[in-house]
Write a protein that binds this DNA or RNA. Structure first.
Length: 197
DNA sequence: CGGGTGATAGACT
DNA sequence: GTCTATCACCCGG
C-alpha cells in the first residue's frame, strides 16, 4: 500500500524538494474514500528574496507563520473559491515552500469526478492548483498538518521519465525572480496546467 | 467589518 | 487557443 515518505524527504533545499516532488504520490485517505494522484507540476517559492511568495521580505503573519516552521508542514491558503496546497521546505526559520500545481489521478477517479461536478474532461480535474485541491478534497482544515502523516501525505511514486524546468506562472511581474526556472513539470504530460516555452 | 489573497469556467475568435 | 468576468474564505482589528 501507500506509505508516507520519511521526514528526511522534506529536509532538502526548496528547489531540490520541488524537483523531487514531481512523480511522487499525494495520498488522501478522505472520509469518502481513498484518493491517490501523481504529482506532475510544482513551483518553488524562495521566501525572503521572492516577491511572488507571501513570505517575501520575511513577512510573518499568522497566515504565513507555518512557512517558518517544520519542513513538510502543509501550507494551505484560500483563494476565493479555491484552496491551494503547499509543502513547507526547510530549514526552520526560512519561509520556503513548494506549491503543488497539478497531478494525475491514480486512485479514486470516480470520487474526483464527483467532487469536480462531473461533465468535465479528465484533464480538467486536476490540472491546476485550485482544481487539484478540490478534486482531492483538501481544505484549510489541513493547514499545519504534516505531509508525512495520515490521512494526507506524500508517498513514494514511480517518478517521472523526464522533468523540465521553466519560469513560473500566475505570479505578478515584479522582481528578478519572475524569470527564474522554479517551476518543475513532467515533459509532455497532459495534466500539466499549461505549457509556456 | 475591511483587506488580502490569483485561478476558474466559459464565451468568443 | 485566448480573453475576461466572476468567484469566497480567513485573518486582524
Amino acid at each position: 500500500m501507500y506509505k508516507p515518505v520519511s521526514d528526511s524527504f522534506f529536509k532538502e533545499p526548496v528547489l531540490e524538494l520541488a524537483y523531487r516532488l514531481v512523480g511522487q504520490y499525494i495520498v488522501h485517505e478522505s472520509e469518502e474514500g481513498l484518493i491517490v494522484a501523481r504529482i506532475v507540476e510544482t513551483e518553488a517559492y524562495h521566501g525572503p528574496e521572492d516577491r511572488a511568495a507571501h513570505s517575501f521580505g520575511n513577512r510573518r503573519t499568522k497566515r504565513t507563520e507555518i512557512m517558518f516552521g517544520e519542513p513538510g508542514s502543509v501550507y494551505t491558503y484560500q483563494m476565493h473559491t479555491h484552496t491551494l496546497m503547499n509543502v513547507v521546505a526547510g530549514p526552520v526559520g526560512t519561509p520556503h515552500a513548494v506549491l503543488l500545481r497539478a497531478a494525475e489521478p491514480v486512485v479514486g477517479q470516480e470520487l474526483m469526478e464527483e467532487r469536480r461536478g462531473g461533465h468535465l474532461k479528465i484533464t480538467d480535474w486536476t490540472n491546476g492548483p485550485g482544481k487539484l485541491s478540490k478534486a482531492l478534497g483538501v481544505t484549510m482544515r489541513y493547514y499545519g498538518h504534516n505531509w508525512g502523516e495520515e490521512p494526507l501525505f506524500i508517498a513514494e511514486g514511480p517518478g517521472s521519465a523526464e522533468i523540465e524546468a521553466g519560469p513560473r506562472v500566475g505570479i505578478g511581474n515584479s522582481g528578478e525572480a519572475v524569470h527564474y526556472p522554479w517551476r518543475f513539470y513532467e515533459k509532455d504530460n497532459p495534466f500539466v496546467s499549461k505549457y509556456r516555452p
